[in-house]
């Protein structure tokens, strides 16, 4: 199977359920963060960099920071709309 279960290593190291869950949570959080980053990149690029120039302009950078804030806010609004108020 895997390297941990090779007979030469004597008694296999035991991972507690807590270790496994901590590991899993960390990896999930990382995956969520990466996915979120990728989405925000796409959305804010579409909104703010409409005509790419030779350098990033001041108005483009401020558009990007507003866009990031609004996207985070939108995620909160959607979450609330789905789970807090049902009719």
């Amino acid at each position: 199977m895997d390297s941990f279960s090779s007979p030469s290593s004597g008694s296999p190291p035991k991972f507690s359920t807590d270790d496994i869950m901590t590991q899993l949570r960390t990896q999930l959080e990382q995956a969520y963060a990466e996915e979120f980053l990728e989405t925000v990149r796409g959305k804010c690029f579409d909104k703010c960099i409409t005509k790419p120039g030779s350098s990033l302009s001041g108005s483009e950078s401020s558009c990007i920071s507003r866009c990031i804030d609004r996207y985070i806010e939108a995620t909160g609004i959607i979450g609330k709309a789905l789970f807090n108020q049902r009719h």
Binding site: T39, K43, K47, R66, Y71, A74, I78, G79, L82
Partner: peptide, 18 residues
């Protein structure tokens, strides 16, 4: 939530983000 945010963002936020 993330899928819905993405598609609602496209539908609702038409101008540049304020």
């Amino acid at each position: 939530i993330s899928k819905l945010t993405s598609s609602c963002w496209d539908k609702c936020i038409t101008g540049s983000p304020g």
